[in-house]
Design a protein around this nucleic acid. Structure first.
Lengths: 107, 107
DNA sequence: TTGACACATGACACTATTATCATATGATGA
DNA sequence: TCATCATATGATAATAGTGTCATGTGTCAA
């Protein structure tokens, strides 16, 4: 637990807010979220993701680029194929948790 | 564990995907998220939220309306004031969890 | 009842996001 | 080298989301 000055506090909370906003923004698109959900079960290449999500190759590539730019993905190239996986288990956990808790709400 | 037909499965996953997308979309706006984060520490009225978030009254009201429409808020009217709180602990948990795990990422 | 306060709502201009089409790149095998 | 496969990228039209101004509604106190 670090003691922060007011300015540092404002900075901290502001960047946490911004960070969280960007993170949620990333997941707030159906196509992108579908890809992330698919990747929870492990690595997949673009064609596989297209097939599983029903999205076009172009769209999948675009969304993968967005996820990549946010450092949410790990990329592995193998010949003609490019394999993607979630960068770390935190993403999987966060999303899984949300999914679980949302299910429990009486919405 | 229920056994679903293909169509039911598609329905289920599709609505879960849609639900999660809408949920994330709701949190993907800085102002709205700031309000939600504030409300984690309990009930607050509009003026209080304006003060704490630094947002205009109009904007806060608009965002509260959005959150209300998504059944994320509980409303209590008391005289001239309107008090808002998060509808259930799931929201708090989901957001807190994301905040915590995002902090642990080396982004 | 009137004025002031607390909040809500509608309309709007501005900006951002979305998915698509067309095309580029890069690797592989013939 | 060339054709082809797998994927990436740029441009663009359509749509959605953002915050603000103006104004409406309901409550209370005088």
């Amino acid at each position: 637990m670090t003691l922060l000055s007011y300015d540092e506090f404002i900075m901290e909370t502001s960047t946490a807010l911004d960070g969280l906003t960007s993170f949620y923004k990333l997941l707030s698109n159906r196509s992108r979220l579908a890809i992330v959900l698919e990747l929870r079960s492990g690595e997949a290449n673009v064609a596989e993701l297209c097939h599983r999500t029903g999205l076009s190759q172009t769209l999948v590539s675009h969304q993968l680029a967005a996820l990549r730019n946010a450092d949410i993905l790990r990329v592995r190239r193998a010949g003609k194929h490019t394999y993607y996986q979630l960068a770390d288990e935190h993403i999987t956990t966060i999303v899984g948790y949300a999914l679980e808790h949302l299910g429990e709400r009486e919405v």
